[in-house]
Design a protein around this nucleic acid. Structure first.
Lengths: 217, 217
DNA sequence: CAATTTCCTGACCACTTAGTCATTTTTTTG
DNA sequence: CAAAAAAATGACTAAGTGGTCAGGAAATTG
């Protein structure tokens, strides 16, 4: 039964994970073209040939790592229904995405680079799962609007703007750090989240939930 | 008098422009590492050695092109004073930045890639002119807030969010096109601008100026 | 324990790349 | 128009790249 070609608990699975982590770090820092297989090997503390043994090619490794990353893109917002509270649902979504930018900035950067380059390896994903997800969310937002529970904004653009702002804190951290003169710590992310929740929710005619209200500053 | 080492009107100046334009296109599409000098040469319809003749190295060309691009980052918002109208000033700024994303997406993408990579060639610019610009704008926004002319948002984060949203339309155009099923035309940018102006201004407790109000849809 | 599969690796190769250099052509200038 | 400066370019090089391959070590299995 368990004698299939690939053992999940085997030594290979562990190495694959190590390689994927090393690849994520390297690709996020230097981009696809800017990263050599040797660099990934050094980062993973494995010989270069070993990388090519587990992943047939640099491109194969990149695609595997991309899939890995895309699985992080889930949040509570996926399960929201039209009966949920718009203010709380949107605020939580924004907070979730901000947390992602804080805890997984590398993944965000890789995604950004991929899309910047025309998303060659994500086009299939975009036109399948992603479009379906989008249509579902848009329907719910439109329902909230129809129920008169929020301002009549275009849901599509609203989601674009939420993504733009939240991902910005990961993707443009170099600029943000320079302008602030210091890196964004946990507390700064919390403040940024409050600011963004206030901006977006007010912009949608919603009241900011208690838990995202002004901090006890 | 005009016999300085470099003639501005000479044949060389024209070629430099041609090379810079070709470089912008190539770097925006393939990134720094992903672009070969040969590709730029082909795009500029000049022999490769000619590129290296005008710009000492690939990196030199890249830096020159970056400087070129950064000069585009000016707008009416640079001259705004605390006596100007917050709603109109901010709306115009958002509109200016959206126009940039529509008319110079390549420049935006190159800037994004540079910052994603840690902004190695922009750190000096960031910590000089850019910080000064920022401080000036923040002071004006704070003045507007002190005058009770807009909600007390943190000006720093507000500007981050304006940049994030406006640049998003250039940098993530691949994703946006996939999700919409069609590319963003002029009219779509205008609609996105109205949506964004409404979102941000409402979020700041401001009234949307007539010219950015609901289209005659 | 033998056999089979998985895992590991050094040596190597074909190819691309940025950049140099010597030389020639074109343009400018006194 | 001659001299000098600027512009152009083909041939070449040195370094780095992704990827192959053959052979061996280790683990798994009947």
């Amino acid at each position: 039964m368990a004698s299939k070609s690939k053992m999940d608990g085997s030594i290979g699975a562990k190495n694959k994970q190590k390689i994927l982590a090393a690849a994520e770090k390297a690709f996020a820092t230097y981009g696809f073209k800017g990263t050599s297989v040797q660099q990934i090997a050094d980062e993973a503390e494995l010989p270069k040939t070993n990388i090519l043994y587990y992943f047939k090619s640099k491109q194969g490794l990149y695609v595997a790592m991309l899939q890995d990353i895309m699985s992080l893109w889930n949040s509570r917002f996926d399960q929201v229904t039209e009966d949920d509270d718009p203010a709380e649902s949107l605020a939580d979504y924004i907070a979730d995405k901000m947390t992602m930018s804080r805890t997984h900035p590398q993944a965000s950067k890789i995604f950004a680079m991929e899309v910047l380059n025309g998303a060659p390896y994500l086009n299939k994903f975009f036109s399948n799962e992603h479009v379906a997800w989008m249509e579902g969310r848009v329907a719910i937002l439109n329902s909230w609007i129809a129920q008169g529970r929020m301002t009549a904004v275009d849901p599509l653009y609203l989601l674009f703007h939420i993504w733009a702002c939240t991902q910005h804190y990961a993707d443009f951290s170099a600029q943000i750090t320079s302008l602030r003169g210091k890196t964004m710590k946990r507390a700064d992310f919390d403040e940024a989240t409050r600011q963004l929740v206030q901006l977006i929710l007010s912009g949608c005619g919603l009241t900011v939930p208690e838990k995202y209200a002004e901090s006890a500053k």
